[in-house]
Amino acid sequence: MTTTRTPAPPRRRPRPVSSGRLTSASGLGLGVGVLWLSLIVLLPIASIVVVAFQSGFGEFWDSITHPGALAAIRLSVGAALLVTVINAVMGTLVAWVLVRDSFWGKRIVEVIIDIPFALPTIVAGLVLISLYGPQSPFGINLVGTRTGIFVALLFVTLPFVVRSVQPVLIEMERDVEEAAASLGASGFTIFRRIVLPTLAPAILAGSALAFARALGEFGSVILISANLAGKTEVSSAYILKLIEQNDTTGAAAVATILLLVAVIVLVLLDSLQRLAARRD
């Protein structure tokens, strides 16, 4: 047997794949990734807040309390909330029917649900204005009305709740419902006491995404809303108007409010979701 001298361990020890600690190569990769994220996400978001306050808090306050800004924010938040509630209910119902029922044409409905996801927002806007615009085949003209904005937001946020509830419903054990039924619970009671609590985290997760989307929506609403200042001008359209008028502080201030509302609602729904999920 050869007796070799014990070599000193290398200065930088090798790391096994399984250790989960960064190697020099993966550390470099992480550095590049974080740098890239900073350049395209963190810095731009930071810039919004910085620009909003660069002329002082007074300027910021004036910008967001400007009647046009208030109207736009109120419209966006209100419409987003309402649309989220409606699609939370309807989305759950649609998911339920798609999972539990079977009928001719179900697969077509499945494909149709994804259309608002895949359709460019401006095309969605065009789609809606051709149905509810001046040339509407039914003579319904929603251009320049809040109802028009509302329909557009319902359209683009439809898939969120459906797609987050569906997988949970598919995996849900029917035994529990059957047990409840054998204990004498009615269909509605079973839904309220057994099914709904199980679905709640998924419904909330889908709702959070839908709300965030509706809050900042632009492409699908601008055609049908006609951007009437103080009436049908949503926040994103208002921000765009300000930036085109070179009012960067105003644009940044309203954008900051949008970010803030989105963060509050996302955190709120996330904690609700955790609360609901804890019961499992």
């Binding site: 047997m1 050869t2 070799t4 014990t6 070599p7 361990p9 290398p10 020890r13 090798p14 096994p16």
Partner: peptide
Amino acid sequence: EIEGVHATWLPP
């Protein structure tokens, strides 16, 4: 040591 070779810091 594997077959007389110091393998402590060799990758797999």
